[in-house]
Amino acid sequence: MIRLPAFTYLAPSTIDAAARLVAEHGREAMLVAGGTDLYPNMKRRQFEPKVLVGLRGIRELRGIRGSAAGGVTIGAATTLSAVAAHRDIVRDFPALATAAGLVSSPQLRNMGTIGGNVCVDTRCNYYNQSYEWRKAIGFCMKKDGDICLVAPGSSRCWAVSSSDTAPVLWALGAKLRLVSAEGERTIPMAALYQDDGIEYLAKRPDEIVADVQLPAAVEGWRSAYLKLRRRGSFDFPVLGVAVAARMEGDVVRDARIVLGAVASQPRPSEKAAAALVGQRVTPDLIAHVADLAAGPAKPLDNTDFSHPYRKKVTRVFVARAVAAVCGLGDSGATSEEVA
């Protein structure tokens, strides 16, 4: 049996108390909510925190509040199951419900939280291995070593952002409220991340993601999320495509396209989105947009599926997601993958 390393477990009951504990223990402490990402990593000794600050007992972190008109706020410790099943989210932000409902397995979604998924550790199949395996192949810079095994000449880590919900939240224009002992601030999703496999979060380590704020639902916005993975369950995305667009009749008035699992952070395709705006969507335009979005994607050989294949499918998925959102009907996307 693989077991956890020893640690001290602290269970604050308020977010302020949690923030104080994190500040007090500094680098020795880590936050845990559902534990579905952290505990496997701890079992493989990717992390050996001396102190865990548990967020499960903090009531203010749980639950979905607000309304479509005024904006919905999701407590960071709300489970992915709860997000996926929430009526308002299903109705107004279907891509988010889809993405949350596609994370790993049903059991894991009952434990894993939206905050945890947004902050989920970047992945690489040189990194998500046991201590013995990593030692045998030579430790990489993300843990215990100093080189990148995917791109040996590289000075940075290329571990892959593997969140399903992050690209969707980004495309939906969501914001995050961060709380620390020093106070709190609200940032756009985009500001949470940076393109580095190790330091993929741009927030300070002592800041706790308190909640996810969705903008007020505006007439005409539609969204979709497509996920590439080998199986319909368990697997992390090896490509995620989130598309949100505001339609007026058949003309696109506003659009955002964000790709997941193609870099160390969600990657917006601004050019592609811009190409849609003000246009009537046609198959030719979709093909053009798909090229623009997929062009910069540079998957590497560190996830499931070959990276040339992931690149090929990026184009297909962008086209399908755009078609689904902009009302060109079913073009092969299954209902499970598209909302």
């Binding site: 998500n128 395996w133 045998a136 319909g232 369950s233």
Partner: peptide
């Protein structure tokens, strides 16, 4: 991969689910 089993886990070694 190199000299190692590339996927020695239930997650990475793909076994079909009900789906």
């Amino acid at each position: 991969r190199k000299t190692l089993h590339k996927l020695p886990s239930m997650l990475d070694y793909k076994s079909p689910t009900t789906l």
